[in-house]
Amino acid sequence: MNKINQISSLVICTVLMTPYSYASDGFFDWMSSTKRMKGIEAIDDKVYNEECGACHFAYQPGLLPQASWKKLIDPKALEDHFGDNAELDAETHKHIETILLDKAADKSHYKRSRKIMASLDKDSAPLRISEIPYIIEKHDELSSKHIKDNPQVKSLSACAKCHQNAEQGEFDEDNVRIPGFKQWDD
C-alpha cells in the first residue's frame, strides 16, 4: 500500500510539472540542475563583454528574444546601431552572433528570460530591452528624478547603474541601489 502511495505521488507530481515543460529542449537538464537560474544567464566571454560593453552595459543575450538579436546583429544594422557605428570584423561578428542566438531569451531556462518571453506577444521582436512590457512594468514606480534627471543614470538602458549585480545577471529588487538615493524599498 505504501509503495503504491509513493509511486502515485510521483506520478501526480510529474503530471503537474508537464505543462511547465512547454516547448523546451533541455527541460530535464534544467530540472536536475541545482544551479541558481533565477536571473538572466551571465556571459563570461571576453570578446562579447569587451565589444558589446564598450559603449554601454554588456546586455546579456537572455534579455531579448532571438528575433530581436537577429535584427540587431545584422551587419548593415550594426553600421547604424542607435546612431552609432558598432561594426564588427567578420570573425568577431560570427563569434558574437553565435552567443546572442544561442543564449537568447527564448532559448533560456533562466527565470527572468522566461518572464520577458511571457510578457511579449508572439512574434514580437523589440530592439530595446527598455521596451519590453515586463521591464517597463517593473520600473513603473520610478520617475524621472531617478532616471532621466539623475545625472548618474540618465537612461533606463543603463541597467548596471542601479542593479549592482547586473553583470552576474542578477536583477533582484534586493540588489538595487539607485545612485544618489537610499536603498530601494517599495
Binding site: 559603449c55 554601454h56 552595459f57 528624478k145 539623475n150 545625472p151 548618474q152 543614470v153 540618465k154 537612461s155 538602458s157 543603463a158 547603474k161 541601489r177 539607485i178 545612485p179 544618489g180 538615493f181 537610499k182
Partner: peptide
C-alpha cells in the same frame, strides 16, 4: 557614453 556619467555629482536625496 553612458559610463562617463559617473563623474558627475548626484543631486539626489542622499550622499551614498
Amino acid at each position: 557614453l553612458l559610463q562617463s556619467a559617473t563623474v558627475l555629482n548626484a543631486t539626489g536625496e542622499s550622499t551614498s
